[in-house]
């Protein structure tokens, strides 16, 4: 499976939507997202983003 690689235009879009503070692209900042508690596997993402979404109450 091949996927589109993230480019500057994509990152700009994410920053416009989420704000720059919530879009991480620096290599050092991405390092914590490259592994978990599983053995010694490392996969670095191209970017990471997170946000606090608006409150939505359940139906």
């Amino acid at each position: 499976m091949t996927y589109k690689q993230i480019d500057e235009e994509d990152i700009k879009h994410f920053r416009d939507v989420l704000s720059a503070a919530y879009v991480i692209t620096g290599k050092d900042q991405l390092e914590p997202f490259a592994h978990d508690y599983t053995e010694d596997l490392v996969f670095v993402p191209r970017s990471s983003y997170y946000r606090q979404i608006q409150e939505r109450l359940p139906p």
């Binding site: 993230i6 978990d36 599983t38 993402p45 191209r46 997170y50």
Partner: peptide, 27 residues
């Protein structure tokens, strides 16, 4: 690739194809 605390033991949160990691720690 959605990601919680990264405490999984099967590599489920690893972005094996790169792309975006969606961190949920602030929710």
């Amino acid at each position: 690739t959605p990601r919680g605390a990264g405490t999984g033991l099967s590599g489920g949160a690893l972005p094996v194809y790169g792309g975006v990691v969606l961190g949920l720690q602030r929710m």
